[in-house]
């Protein structure tokens, strides 16, 4: 009986703690929502199988116990049953593969993009480079993005702000409703570029380039973290993406280019293309 009670309370706790996040974030892109859909589908499939299997099991535990006078049966094999419970799960999984394959194909879409951004992982920061955005000397608009949380907050000497460890000095800026392609690689060890709200996660591997893409419909600020152990400060290289309307993006690029060119003493000889 005790076993029952504990198990049941365990299964129902998520509902009771609604204030605490228990489920995957839906995210804001078409892909992230498709992924959320897959997640929920496979979750309910598991719940359904679980209800049947554990149902039978707890029924036997309750009714077929020696203390209730149960006498054990002698049956011990049935080819028919074995075939049934090999076949049905197999079919369920085949059915599951269909939508999963569809989403995967969509994720691997290699059609052309509007904006290409080179993302490089370093121990322990990210750098972003806007391909084709020449500063005037052949170099592209590029900058590092570092964690901006003060040490005092980490060492509990100051109160932590709501974006603790998820804030950077220079966020990645991209326009809304444009197809942005991330060309991802690394300088030293393997890192992984992850923005949960876009369902984009790709490893950044030194010497190799990976790509991922996204179209973000909603302007906003989206936060992620490095998702591959990359050494000491792996937990301290967040990713912040600022999505802005297109005109704002164009203005930002011009401004940023000027700012960097000035700081580096470059006279822009080529206007931005």
């Amino acid at each position: 009986m005790r076993f029952w009670i504990i198990l049941m309370s365990l299964l129902t706790t998520p509902a009771a703690w609604a204030a605490w996040d228990v489920n995957m974030r839906q995210g804001v892109t078409e892909i992230s929502q498709a992924v959320y859909g897959l997640h929920m589908t496979i979750f309910w499939v598991c719940v359904a199988i679980g209800v049947v299997v554990f149902g039978v099991m707890f029924y036997s535990i309750y009714h077929h116990r020696k203390s209730r006078g149960a006498v054990s049966d002698t049956f011990h094999e049935s080819t028919k049953l074995e075939i049934i419970w090999t076949g049905i799960p197999f079919l369920i999984l085949v059915a599951m593969c269909v939508p999963a394959t569809k989403v995967l194909i969509q994720m691997y879409d290699a059609s052309d993009s509007d904006i290409d951004i080179k993302v490089v992982g370093y121990q322990w920061k990210w750098s972003y480079e806007y391909l084709g955005q020449d500063l005037g000397n052949g170099d592209n608009l590029a900058y590092f993005s570092n964690l901006s949380t003060p040490r005092a907050e980490v060492y509990n000497e100051a109160p932590k702000n709501p974006n603790y460890l998820l804030e950077v000095d220079e966020p990645l800026v991209i326009p809304a409703n444009k197809k942005v392609r991330f060309l991802i690689t690394a300088n030293d060890v393997i890192h992984a570029f992850w923005v949960p709200d876009f369902a984009v996660k790709k490893d950044a591997i030194p010497g190799f380039v990976n790509e991922a893409w996204t179209i973000v419909p909603e302007p906003g600020i989206y936060r992620g973290q490095c998702a591959e152990l990359c050494g000491e400060a792996h937990g301290y290289m967040p990713i912040v993406v600022k999505v802005v309307p297109e005109d704002e993006y164009v203005a930002w690029v011009d401004n940023k280019k000027q700012q960097i060119a000035q700081a580096r003493g470059i006279t822009p000889s080529v206007a931005h293309r």
Binding site: D109, A110, S111, D112, S113, D116, R181, L183, T185, P206, G207, F208, V209, E211
Partner: peptide, 11 residues
């Protein structure tokens, strides 16, 4: 045909 853009990277 599906590939409309190729990236060539040198490290």
């Amino acid at each position: 045909d599906s590939v409309r853009a190729i990236t060539l990277n040198y490290t």
